[in-house]
Design a protein around this nucleic acid. Structure first.
Lengths: 233, 233
DNA sequence: AAGATAGTGTGTGAAATTTACACCATTAAA
DNA sequence: TTTAATGGTGTAAATTTCACACACTATCTT
């Protein structure tokens, strides 16, 4: 009877699908690789987990090292473990995803030399990505599309203060369908978790819209873990 | 610049949370371990993935070896990767889950000596489990509770022919709440994916109920990947 | 055979939610 | 002052959800 673990040449890696919203487009964070295999290719930010760190911690560290982004609220997506997915050996990758506010971030500067650069790229017309990263992205995108109907993830992508039109257009972009303005506003406001500010939009050459804030405290009170945000029609 | 993978003493394992429904109770499949660590403890069926098999294939193989169940439609749940989760070293486990028909299964007979036996245990009052398996179970249970509202997973747990009362009671057990009989039946039938059989229930000492079948073909036609089964009130 | 027992099967009205739909208001720039 | 662009608002019809109670049927017991 074995009492110790077998020795395998297996490693875990992390890959991150980080979504952002900018200029009316949904984007994800990519890096340009500076290391074989797939040197010079575009890829999701990802690297190998150390032996003495938890997978969750590793994910945070790796995202930071490759993009300079710290303390991102990443969540696990799925684990990809096909045998041939990495040309150099057995690498099972644990994918994470997050939705973040592009605007609030400083510049994206990798702190390792494994990536030449990190940058935002629209999810429409993504280039070919290294490894199986295209599949990982698609899995993540499907997940957030669906999750948008259940969880208040849209607010993570918007600036702290936003207009209802911005919010609606984000829903439209993610779900790839038009929504009715009056119904959308009525419904969103009816939940009661949007706080109307006295401020207005600035710098626009048309009538300035009211700004709103997402009140997470109220949200949690209202939907104590039971939520259902549906936006149809 | 590295061009080969580092060598780590890391292994992947699989753990399976297999749900079944029997005698009005929701159950999961457990094994009694025959190997250190946690020898003689109850645990989820799980073992170590080989280096030359995909994680998905490994999951199927391991479930078979520990329980005798083949070709189960298992799906990935979550990956658990805390550093200290395995007392003998770095083991990241990829958890899978499935909902299956207990009735159709032959006996549960492990084909390896790693498990003394495999058996069904009600999810109410689960014993202490090895490793972090209790947390894995809870994650799976949360997942299916939620998924019940979106996907036709209840039918995987029932016999092929079932009564509406059985279906309702399964919903009630998973969601731990009472549902209204008339509303439940009205709603379920309104979807149009239940096929009423001419047969009736047998062997009961009261009026026999009609039997129904889940018509997956119709289901797919109706909800082409867009589904929303809500059972409230 | 009469009654007890246990679960089957059915409909309606009130309330809430969803849907479809169009025009005037405001601001800044030309 | 005109134009261009977006902001902001209400109502009625249709649909869905919800609450709710009783007669029917098969078997078992005596």
């Amino acid at each position: 009877m074995e009492t110790t673990l077998p020795k395998f040449d297996s490693v875990f890696s992390i890959d991150c699908v980080i979504f952002g919203f900018e200029a009316g487009e949904l984007k994800i964070l990519l890096i340009e690789r500076n290391e074989e295999p797939f040197k010079d290719w575009f890829a999701l930010p990802g690297y190998i987990v150390e032996q003495d760190e938890s997978v969750d911690d590793g994910a945070k560290r790796i995202l930071y090292e490759l993009t300079g982004l710290r303390n991102m609220p990443i969540k696990q997506l799925h684990t990809f473990g096909d045998v041939g997915r990495h040309p150099q050996g057995r690498v099972v990758t644990i994918a994470y995803f997050a939705l973040i506010r592009i605007s609030g971030q400083k510049e994206l500067t990798p702190v390792t030399h494994y990536a030449k650069k990190a940058f935002w790229h629209p999810v429409k017309e993504l280039p070919k990505l290294a490894f199986d990263h295209t599949i990982i992205f698609e899995t993540a995108f499907r997940r957030i599309r669906r999750r948008l109907n259940y969880q208040p993830i849209a607010f993570d992508l918007l600036p702290e203060k936003f207009t209802l039109t911005q919010l609606q257009s984000l829903y439209e972009v993610i779900q790839d369908k038009k929504l009715d303005k009056r119904n959308f506003r009525k419904k969103m406001l009816s939940y009661g978790f949007l706080k109307e500010l006295s401020e207005k939009q600035k710098g626009v050459s048309y009538r300035a819209a009211k700004l709103y804030k997402f009140d997470r405290r109220k949200y949690n009170k209202i939907f104590q873990n039971e939520l259902n945000i549906q936006t149809t029609g």
